[in-house]
Amino acid sequence: MFIPKPPFLSYRCRTLLTTLIGWLTLSGHSLASDVEHHHFSSPTLGYDYPYSVYLPDNYDTQATTPYPVIYMLHGSFGTDRDWVSRGNLQQVADRLIRAGHIPPAVFIMPGSRSWWVDGHNEPARSAFFNDLMPHVEATYRVGQERHLRGVAGLSAGGYGALNFALERPDLFAAVAALSPASYAPLPPRNSSAWRHPAFINDQGQFDRELWETLNYTAHLEEYRLRVTPRGTDEEGDLPPVPLYISAGRSDVYDAEFHARLLRQAMERIQPNEVRLDLYPGGHTWQVWRASLPAALNFLFQYVGQPNNVAAAEETAEQAMPVEESPDEVSS
């Protein structure tokens, strides 16, 4: 028997409805996690500290085992929402967790007005350690031990993540720096560091001494002494912090050159625990999106592994060639 289609639903409407239902179904399957945006009162800053948080599918506040946590730092003049809105962190983390490449984990994406330093505009470094980390560990079911923490960042956030790991190797099991703005001895003239309020003194000039005091080169010797066995009674058992670095080959800030200098300096201290990946492209989100899966795979070789011993061979994905993108970020 022929049954006519309801007249109130045209062919076009039925097609659109079918497409919408399919899109919603696929979206539900591909993004099973939650991303939330919060802020809390920071005594160190004297104002609210913003952050975004990625919670994995079926996040359990009462879980017997705490979740590993990765702190993801944004770039110069960025915000706490950049990693999700531009970096595809939610989609990448969902995919890697679903495939079993990384464990379910919490990602904290804080916001800062500085380069993650105690600069001329705000004490961002002190606020991170004294306010943000205690707040996160009191609010979420995340680990409070070194082997359950990692830190990563891009551009100025890579600068900050590297400094945090070198200064406090007791807190982080691994670090990833994507196109880190860790320029030595000084930033290139086109870098936003020369005009960023973090490094502008009361006379309105770039504070070279502050840069040299806070850059990674100033932390290397103390870091080396803390992680290098010396066979003395005072020797600790603190292992090095494995480092992942990435950079674009046509970066306008010459990030490849500075990344190679960084790798060379770190390999003198911790041979075989530094990895450098180079990608086609510049100082852009295309490069950082391409390198994010490899960075997370690298981090979780150590984060979440008891005693920082990797449980499996490296599973980092090889990046596909990417084209130069106009969405450049100053650094």
Rank of each mutant, 00 (worst) to 15 (best):
L132E: 04
L132C: 04
L132K: 01
M133T: 11
M133V: 15
P134I: 08
P134H: 12
P134N: 10
H135L: 06
H135C: 04
H135P: 02
H135F: 10
V136K: 01
V136E: 01
E137A: 05
A138E: 13
T139S: 09
Y140G: 10
Y140K: 00
Y140V: 07
V142L: 10
G143Y: 05
Q144F: 07
E145L: 13
R146Y: 08
R146G: 09
H147R: 10
L148F: 08
V151C: 05
V151H: 01
V151F: 02
A152T: 12
A152L: 13
A152P: 06
G153H: 00
L154C: 06
L154G: 08
S155Y: 05
S155E: 04
G157V: 02
Y159G: 05
Y159E: 07
Y159W: 13
Y159K: 11
G160P: 02
A161V: 03
L162V: 05
L162E: 01
L162I: 09
N163H: 12
F164Q: 12
F164D: 04
A165L: 02
A165V: 03
A165G: 00
L166H: 00
E167H: 13
R168V: 06
R168N: 12
P169E: 04
P169S: 04
D170K: 08
D170I: 10
D170M: 07
D170Y: 04
L171R: 14
L171I: 11
L171E: 14
L171H: 12
L171M: 14
F172T: 02
F172C: 05
F172R: 02
A173S: 07
A173P: 01
A174W: 02
V175S: 00
A176P: 02
A176H: 00
A177W: 03
L178F: 13
L178A: 12
L178N: 05
L178C: 09
S179W: 00
S179K: 01
P180L: 06
P180Y: 04
A181L: 06
S182P: 07
S182R: 05
S182G: 11
S182E: 01
Y183A: 08
Y183K: 06
A184M: 12
P185C: 09
P185S: 08
P188W: 00
P188E: 01
N190G: 07
S191Q: 07
S192T: 13
A193N: 03
A193E: 05
R195F: 13
H196Q: 06
P197E: 05
A198G: 13
A198S: 15
A198D: 10
F199V: 05
F199W: 14
F199E: 01
I200L: 07
N201T: 11
D202K: 14
D202C: 09
D202N: 14
Q205I: 08
Q205H: 14
F206T: 02
F206Q: 05
D207M: 10
R208V: 14
R208S: 12
L210K: 07
E212V: 13
T213V: 09
T213E: 13
L214H: 10
L214I: 11
N215P: 08
Y216H: 10
T217W: 12
A218I: 07
H219D: 11
L220I: 12
E221S: 14
E221N: 14
E222R: 15
E222S: 15
Y223F: 11
Y223S: 04
L225M: 14
L225S: 14
L225D: 15
R226E: 09
T228W: 07
P229L: 09
R230H: 15
R230M: 14
G231R: 03
D233V: 15
D233P: 12
E234S: 15
E235G: 15
G236C: 11
